[in-house]
Design a protein around this nucleic acid. Structure first.
Ligand SMILES: [Zn+2]
Ligand SMILES: [Zn+2]
Ligand SMILES: [Zn+2]
Ligand SMILES: [Zn+2]
Lengths: 165, 165
DNA sequence: AACGATAGTGTTATGATATAACATATTTAA
DNA sequence: TTAAATATGTTATATCATAACACTATCGTT
């Protein structure tokens, strides 16, 4: 992912089955390489996060889980914490929600562009955004630990729809 | 505020009385110019937000208010919403907390650098950060509505303290 | 296989953050 | 002065998240 790459909003148009299969394969790899267990439950919750290509909230995950049987909040939050620690998902702070990560092999925090209309999002890790921030920080000797960058607005598709109305 | 200006972490060293007085004066101006009322309650809550030069949470504000008499959450949240709408304070999404704005006359969203050690923060509105993000967005036709940029880490002072230990 | 150690999950209760809904009070403006 | 608009008080409840402890599954050793 670089600053120059176009943003592509992942929507209904693509083969989401294979999209998810890839994500799961990557997740399995990451877990294995770090000696962590991608248990049935963790996989299930990971799938629920990926399912919609939109940020999903913890209690929406819980609702889905409860269709399979009883479940309680800690079950969801523990799995989410695990997945976040491994970088398999990210938390969107401004929405109290979670999204799947496309590039979990590389440690990163990501920048999120999220459509206020349809909920679709993309994750970037733009060098130019990162370095603009780093430069600001260096000016004063601030040592960066965490970057939360969440941009909301209207995605190209939704903008198109609005115009044609 | 520009990208080139150094970050200055506002701490105990300065004359905070006059610092707050300035903030209140600006707030009064802003309210007047937009025909909004800077009521006693709103002023009180604005002061509580400014008091510490750190992000403050709604329920901490509530605790302080309750020292003057009875108060309930909606009282706090309504005032916070009012102050945010006018740009007099900002919300730090990643902390569920609020900070006073130094430059409420100009509409902006700001970028926040917050110290994980001491809680001190600075707000920038860096042109280079903003334009790096705008360029990424333009690449795909994404129309930006809201920017949430929250950088946490260690401020220069705290870094100094750590070294000298 | 038997064992204890570690990691993962279930369950209950509760803490922390935020808003809905409606009653009352205050301010504004005709 | 009075009606409308705005602001605040009050109660209840929605939403988001974690603590604490019991139980189960897995792993590594013997
Ligand atoms: Zn997909
Ligand atoms: Zn990512
Ligand atoms: Zn000050
Ligand atoms: Zn500001």
């Amino acid at each position: 992912m670089s600053a120059e790459q176009n943003i592509i909003f992942c929507r209904d148009h693509h083969d989401h089955q294979s999209c998810m299969a890839t994500a799961i394969a990557k997740a399995e790899q990451v877990c294995e390489s770090r000696n962590q267990r991608f248990t049935k439950l963790r996989k299930r919750i990971f799938e629920l996060v990926w399912q919609q290509h939109k940020p999903i909230r913890a209690y929406d995950i819980l609702d889905q889980l409860q269709q399979d049987g009883r479940a309680a909040p800690p079950t969801v939050y523990r799995a989410l914490d695990f997945l976040m620690d491994l970088g398999l998902i990210h938390r969107i702070e401004s929405m109290n929600a979670f999204v799947g990560c496309n590039n979990p092999q590389q440690k990163h925090e990501g920048q999120f562009f999220i459509c206020n209309d349809c909920g679709a999002f993309v994750e970037l890790d733009s060098t130019s955004i990162n370095s603009a921030i780093s430069i600001s920080a260096e000016h004063s000797g601030f040592e960066i630990q965490q970057r939360t960058i969440e941009i909301t607005g209207i995605c190209p598709e939704c903008k198109g729809k609005k115009k044609s109305q």
